[in-house]
Amino acid sequence: MIRTENLNIGHRSSLLQIENLSLQKGNLYFLIGKNGSGKSTFLKTLSGQIKSISGELFLDDILSTTIHFGELPKTVSFVSSHFPIVDFLKVEDFISLGRSYHTSYFGIVKSIDNHVISDIIIKLKIKHLIGRFTSDLSDGERQLVAIAKALVQETPIILLDEPTAFLDYSNKKLVLETLKKICADMNKCIILSSHDIDMSLEMNCPFLVIDSKSKKLQLFSSNTKKKELLLLAFD
């Protein structure tokens, strides 16, 4: 689903290298690394917000540089760490904006779109939030709504930038378990960045670790020990 060949990324100068990585559908990956090590840069590169410096990146077997920015929403959806603070934006209007790529010129939501949207709303168990304003939601509810917006986009790849940062324990668990379930049920390739190593270990998922010394991103299996992860990423 996501494949790299000697990819070199960064904002201007090289920050991070990803030699040969191959990420599959049906997997939830935890992206782990120090502050400033390049987690966000990696996610931004995958979502086309910044260009890579050298090397090649394939999304769904297509070379990323050949994908027009207007076509990228078909393949990749992104859940930002900041939820937009806007008055009077209803939950259902917010979620349906995720359909933008699929809707026509005027963005009218048709019955096919509504079908997808209500399907996702039921899957995420957020039906009770319909009709409320996004500005009135709690952090946990916002995160679920943001995930719903990404899901209705129907992309094979979903990226989340620190989705659990502002959440308490029970909400963290809810969001991560929901994501894991979606990943398996809907056969998605999901990457999320996180600082919460304990929580990540609990979820029993593969890790993408940014080596703090060699500045390289490497894949580790779900049964990697905590000690080893800490040593690699934070020492």
Partner: peptide, 14 residues
């Protein structure tokens, strides 16, 4: 309608 979410989000939605 998409710009309500901010320019960054709008770009991501194409």
């Amino acid at each position: 309608n998409i710009l309500v979410l901010g320019e960054k989000e709008a770009k991501l939605l194409g």
